[in-house]
C-alpha cells in the first residue's frame, strides 16, 4: 500500500465515521433573532425590503448568521466537519474553496426566536482532479432548529479541499462536476456466525430464511438454536419473495443518516410464516396500507451492503 493509498483509506474511514455520527447539535445561538442585527444586515446588503422590520421577521438568507461564532472563541461545540477538515489538511489537502450552498427555508424566523444549528456530515468524494489541483469534495448539511425542535431552515454545503498546484491558479476555475463515487452507507448491520448467511444471500439476490436441519422449523430473525427443537444444526431456505404488509411507519423526523425523509419501514409477513422488517419503496406513501401484497427487491447501499426492500406486488 502506498502512502497515498493509506491517506485515502484513512480519509474514507474517517468520513464513514463522521457520517455515522449523524446529526450533531451545536450550542444555541448567543443571541435570539433580533432587530439590531437585522437592521445592520439590511443596511450592509442595501436591502430596502420593509417586510422584515415591519413584521419582526429575519431575512431568510440570514439563517446561518444567527449561529455564527463571530469573534467568540470556544463558543461552539465541535462539529463532525471539524475532524474531517483537520484530516484533509494533514493529508496535504490544505486549499479550500466552497462549491455549493443550497438553503431551504421552511419559514421565516421571528424576532425573539433562538436558533440552534445541527450539523450532519454526509459525504466525502475523491480524490478528483480539478483545475485547482487534486482534491476531495466534502459535503455536510446544517439544520437550524428553534425551540421545541422545529426545523426552520436547512443548508447543504460543499467544499473542495485541494492540494494547491505548484503555481497558484490565476483564477479558481469552476470545480469539476458532482463526484459519483459511492461512499459507505452509514447504517450497517452487525453480523456474526449466526447471521452472516442472511447478508451473503441479499448480495446474491436471495432472501434466506434460517431453517432447522433436524425439524425444518423456519426462523427469522435467525439465531443459533432452533426455537422448536433447540438443534444447532441449521440450514436455510430461499423465501419466495412475496409477502404482505403487517404494519408500517412513515419516518419524518429527526433526520436519519444515509436516508432521505419521509421514508416507509414495514413489518412484512411472508407466506413461509415468518416476519421481516424492511423498507417499502416504489410506492406513493399515501398508497401504503396494511395487508397490501409486496414483492422483494434488492438495493445496493454501497460496495458491500445489499438490503432487501419491498415494492407493491400482485395480489
Amino acid at each position: 500500500m502506498t502512502r497515498e493509498d493509506r491517506i485515502h483509506e484513512e480519509l474514507r474511514e474517517l468520513a464513514a465515521k463522521q457520517v455515522a455520527l449523524g446529526e450533531v447539535r451545536g450550542v444555541p445561538a448567543a443571541d435570539p433573532v433580533n432587530v439590531p442585527m437585522i437592521r445592520h444586515w439590511l443596511a450592509a446588503m442595501g436591502d430596502a425590503n420593509p417586510v422584515y422590520l415591519d413584521q419582526g421577521l429575519a431575512p431568510p438568507a440570514m439563517a446561518q448568521v444567527w449561529t455564527m461564532q463571530g469573534l467568540r472563541t470556544g463558543a461552539r461545540g465541535r462539529s463532525p466537519v471539524d475532524d474531517m477538515m483537520t484530516a484533509l489538511d494533514a493529508g496535504g489537502y490544505t486549499g479550500v474553496v466552497a462549491t455549493n450552498c443550497e438553503q431551504t427555508y421552511h419559514r421565516y424566523v421571528r424576532v425573539g426566536e433562538r436558533l440552534t444549528a445541527a450539523t450532519r456530515f454526509t459525504d466525502l468524494a475523491g480524490p478528483k482532479r480539478t483545475a485547482l489541483g487534486v482534491g476531495y469534495f466534502a459535503t455536510w448539511n446544517i439544520t437550524w432548529y428553534v425551540e421545541d425542535d422545529e426545523p426552520v431552515a436547512e443548508m447543504l454545503f460543499r467544499v473542495l479541499k485541494f492540494r494547491p498546484a505548484e503555481r497558484p491558479a490565476e483564477r479558481p476555475a469552476e470545480p469539476s462536476p458532482e463526484p459519483s463515487r459511492r461512499e459507505p452507507y452509514p447504517l450497517r448491520p452487525a453480523t456474526n456466525q449466526d447471521t452472516a448467511f442472511f447478508w451473503e444471500g441479499t448480495k446474491r439476490g436471495e432472501l434466506r430464511i434460517q431453517s432447522c436441519a433436524d425439524c425444518g422449523e423456519l426462523r427469522h430473525p435467525p439465531g443459533p438454536l432452533c426455537p422448536r427443537c433447540r438443534s444447532a444444526d441449521r440450514t436455510h431456505t430461499l423465501a419466495t419473495g412475496t409477502g404482505t404488509l403487517y404494519s408500517y411507519v412513515v419516518h419524518h423526523h429527526p433526520p436519519v443518516p444515509g436516508r432521505e425523509a419521509p421514508f416507509v419501514v414495514g413489518v412484512v409477513e411472508l407466506p413461509e410464516g415468518v416476519r421481516i422488517v424492511g423498507n417499502v419503496v416504489d410506492c406513493p406513501i399515501e398508497e401504503v396500507t396494511i395487508g397490501m401484497p409486496l414483492r422483494v427487491t434488492y438495493r445496493s447501499m454501497d460496495d458491500r451492503l445489499v438490503l432487501p426492500m419491498w415494492t407493491p406486488g400482485e395480489a
Binding site: 447504517l187 448491520p189 449466526d194 447471521t195 419516518h251 429527526p254 419501514v265 426492500m309
Partner: peptide
Amino acid sequence: TGEPTSQGLEMSWHVPYGLMT
C-alpha cells in the same frame, strides 16, 4: 448496530432500514 452483541444483532434487523428512533 456497532458490535455483534446480542443487542447489536437485534438492532441490525431494523437500523439498516432507518428504523432507529
